[in-house]
Design a protein around this nucleic acid. Sequence first.
DNA 1: TTCCTTCTGCAATCTCTTTGCAGGTATTAA
DNA 2: TTAATACCTGCAAAGAGATTGCAGAAGGAA
Lengths: 135, 135
Amino acid sequence: MADQHELREKGLRLTPQRELVLQAVRDLGHATPEEVAEKVRATHPGINLSTVYRNLETLENVGLVLHTHLGHGGATYHAAEELTHLHLVCSICGDIGDAPIDTAANFVNTLSDDYGFKTDVTHFAIYGTCQKCSK
Amino acid sequence: MADQHELREKGLRLTPQRELVLQAVRDLGHATPEEVAEKVRATHPGINLSTVYRNLETLENVGLVLHTHLGHGGATYHAAEELTHLHLVCSICGDIGDAPIDTAANFVNTLSDDYGFKTDVTHFAIYGTCQKCSK
DNA sequence: TTCCTTCTGCAATCTCTTTGCAGGTATTAA
DNA sequence: TTAATACCTGCAAAGAGATTGCAGAAGGAA
C-alpha cells in the first residue's frame, strides 16, 4: 500500500487504523466521519469512532485529506488529491453533484479583482436544486 | 411596529417573543440562534432559547426569515428581504463579507445551462480568505 | 367575557464531536 | 533483537448545539 511512504513522510506513525481511515476516505469520495467509520468497520469492526475523528483531523493537518461543509452541518471529508471539482448540493434530494473547478474560474477572478477575496474552491459548496428535482 | 400585519397575515399569532425574534434578526443582519437569543434577552431577559429556535423555524416556514450555512456548522439567519447579497466567509478571521448577487450571475447561468442545476443564491456561502487576511 | 388553539418556559433528551486517561504499539537507538 | 519513549487507540465521560414533551399561559374569534 502506497500509504506507507505518504504517512511516514508526513511524520505520522503507520497504524492500521490510520491507513484504513485514509483508504476509506479515498474509496468513498465524499464521506462524513460516521460514514468513514462504517466503511472501516466493514472490515475491521473494533475501530472506535473517536479514532476516526482524530485520524481525520491528523490527516487533514498534514494535507492528505480536506473537509468541506455541505450545509447540513456536519463536515464531509475528501482525499486531498481528488478535490478537483465543485460540489453541487441539491437542497431537495440531498444529492451531491460535481462540476469542474473551471466553471467557477471567472467568478473566482471577479471576487479576487473586485473584493480582494481569495476563494478557496476546494472548500466551496453550492446549494440549489438539481436537474432531477427541478422537474 | 409593522410586524403586526406581517405576522398576522401569515396566520401567526402576534406574541412579544415572536416580534422580538423577528426584529432581532432584522437588526443583526446575520445571526445565529444564540446571537438572536442574546439580542432579545438584552431587553427581555426571560425568553427561552427553545422559543427562539421555534420562532426562527416558524418565521422561516412563512418566508419572513431564511437561513444559510456559513460553514462552521450552525445555521445563520437573515431577514428574507435582506438576502440580496452573497456571503464571503473568511476561513481565517471568520469575517463575513458581502458582494452583490450579480457577481455570480454568469456562474449561476453556466451551472444552469451546463448541468441543469438551479443555484439558490440566497443559500450560498463562499469560503476563502478576505483581503485583510491575505496580506 | 369565554373558549379554544397556539405559544412559551422548563427540563429532559438527542446527536454530533471532543477530551481525559490508562493501556498498547510503532519507531528509534543501542 | 531489545529497550525506551513518544505517539496512538479504545473506552467512557463530557460538551455543544438543537430538539421535544408537557403543563400552564396567553392570543384571538365569537
